[in-house]
Amino acid sequence: MTHVQGRVWRGGEPQDDFDFDAISEYLAAGDTLLWCDICDPDHEVLARLADELELDAWAVEDAIAESERTKAVAYRTHTFFTVYGVMVKDPPPADQSDSLLDIHRISGFVLPRGLITVRLSRDFDIDAVSRRFDELGGQEFGVGALVHGLLDVVVDGHFTAVQALDDAIEAIEDDLFANNVRKGLQRRTFRLRKDLVELRRVVLPMREVVNSIQHRRLDVQHGSPELDSHYADLYDHVLRVSEWTDSLRDMITTVFETHLSLQDARLNAVMKKLTGWAAIIAVPTAITGFYGQNVLFPGIDTVGGFVTSTAIIVVLVIVLYWSFRRRDWL
């Protein structure tokens, strides 16, 4: 079911008279700034809004499509963007095959005096975006402040997600070199690799999105230098997250390869010990087999022969055991 909420500012001051049917009137007023959020929309609602605000039909289709990549497209009257908010599951999933992350898509139409956001899921915390608008205190700077607040919340979520993946990889590293390696380590590693791939898909294109919106904002607003430093800081955060995901990709690959190497090393150690014990056991086997021949030989049917063969077995076994222990084969 479609859910609509929004806020209106006049002269930089918040108002309590938001009405979805009066969006065109709000946007026509010179001193008014609008934010409208549409959650789980149907095509008819968006189509009617698109006709009213002259939004691009293809952008409207992209806003409600099942799968769209992170992007920003500038049109004549507005800019359309799609980003993904990432949330870390709390508590973490008990099943090691389940994802650690929840990913939700947010699309937006940036107008000269308003921002229209479209969400397909209610799980994304849109109230955090509203609080960020108030914390920024920059509504007097125009719609660029609203867009910055939304993107700032999204990028903060990316930081939280990449930190959670970093902690999970470090936990795997601790288990990797423990004497009692936990079961399912390979499954956990594979799940983290999949989470990291999904996160990279939504994080890496954010550089283009921030760049495009920043340039388009300057074109529409004819310059708001007060926000330039905010967007520069936002772009720096996007770069840091992107670089962090690159380093995590190398780390998880190294962990996976190290796990295989350690398994090979443990297998070699086991085979070395088994080979050493097999060599020790082969000595009495060979001697008793020799004396088990069906022929006459010195010492047969005598106590001395038994003592001699037993002494040879004991001496050779002790010598081999000491030699193998000295070389750390046992």
Results as ranks from 00 to 15, higher is better:
240 R>M: 09
306 F>G: 09
226 E>S: 12
269 A>Q: 13
234 L>P: 03
244 W>E: 11
275 T>V: 11
268 N>K: 06
279 A>C: 06
307 V>P: 06
279 A>V: 08
309 S>Q: 11
288 T>M: 11
255 V>P: 00
249 R>I: 03
238 V>A: 10
299 G>C: 02
204 L>S: 15
261 S>I: 09
275 T>D: 10
225 P>I: 12
198 E>C: 05
311 A>N: 01
314 V>L: 04
246 D>M: 04
213 I>C: 11
261 S>K: 08
202 V>I: 15
225 P>N: 13
268 N>P: 01
214 Q>W: 05
203 V>R: 07
219 D>S: 09
304 G>F: 15
257 E>T: 06
226 E>L: 14
281 I>P: 00
217 R>W: 03
252 I>H: 00
262 L>Y: 06
246 D>R: 01
234 L>G: 07
223 G>F: 07
275 T>N: 12
224 S>K: 15
288 T>A: 13
316 L>F: 15
288 T>L: 15
307 V>F: 11
218 L>V: 13
286 A>G: 04
316 L>P: 00
258 T>L: 11
242 S>Y: 04
217 R>E: 14
274 L>C: 07
216 R>W: 06
242 S>W: 00
252 I>P: 00
264 D>S: 13
206 M>W: 06
273 K>V: 15
255 V>T: 07
273 K>D: 10
277 W>D: 14
249 R>Q: 08
280 I>H: 00
249 R>E: 06
294 N>D: 03
252 I>M: 02
198 E>G: 03
254 T>N: 10
203 V>E: 11
214 Q>M: 12
266 R>I: 07
289 G>A: 09
211 N>S: 15
256 F>L: 10
248 L>G: 05
279 A>R: 05
272 K>N: 08
233 D>A: 15
244 W>Y: 14
266 R>N: 11
229 S>F: 15
312 I>P: 00
240 R>F: 05
273 K>F: 14
305 G>H: 01
219 D>P: 02
291 Y>S: 04
216 R>Q: 10
199 L>V: 04
275 T>S: 14
312 I>R: 00
202 V>R: 07
252 I>Y: 00
301 D>R: 04
300 I>T: 03
231 Y>V: 08
225 P>E: 15
202 V>H: 04
198 E>D: 13
292 G>Q: 02
303 V>C: 05
297 F>Y: 10
304 G>W: 12
306 F>E: 10
269 A>S: 13
298 P>Q: 03
300 I>Q: 04
256 F>D: 07
241 V>A: 10
306 F>S: 09
313 I>G: 00
304 G>D: 08
311 A>L: 15
289 G>S: 08
